[in-house]
Amino acid sequence: MNVHEKKYTEEHEWIELSEDGKTGTIGVSVYAAKSLGDVVFVELPALDAEVTAGDSMGAVESVKSASDILTPVSGKIIEANNVLEEKPGTINKSPEGEGWIARIQVKDGGELENLMSMDEYAKFTAE
């Protein structure tokens, strides 16, 4: 199995590891971004926050709702995508690219094994 493969949670976040496997980039899926509608505000995670897999690390707000962003893995937040403060709509335009939310120093790479592959996630959302 390719450890750098992008993985997905049942809560519609994605995570992709760096070359060295030490840091992960986290965002929300295309499917989630479509369901949310126009994102008008993003609450970014606090830098240096220590989080456990499944913790709320931020939030995405559209006209109709606020949705917590749950971290797919445990670790320490090392970077947040500040572009989203000024341009929250980037999440709609490119949720799995420029609209990434945060980078995390991964505590235990093994946690990624619990997550879904792109194919598995596609099947999950088609249900």
Partner: peptide, 8 residues
């Protein structure tokens, strides 16, 4: 993220 109430 929880999408309850938003999805079919």
């Amino acid at each position: 993220m929880k999408l309850a109430g938003l999805l079919p």
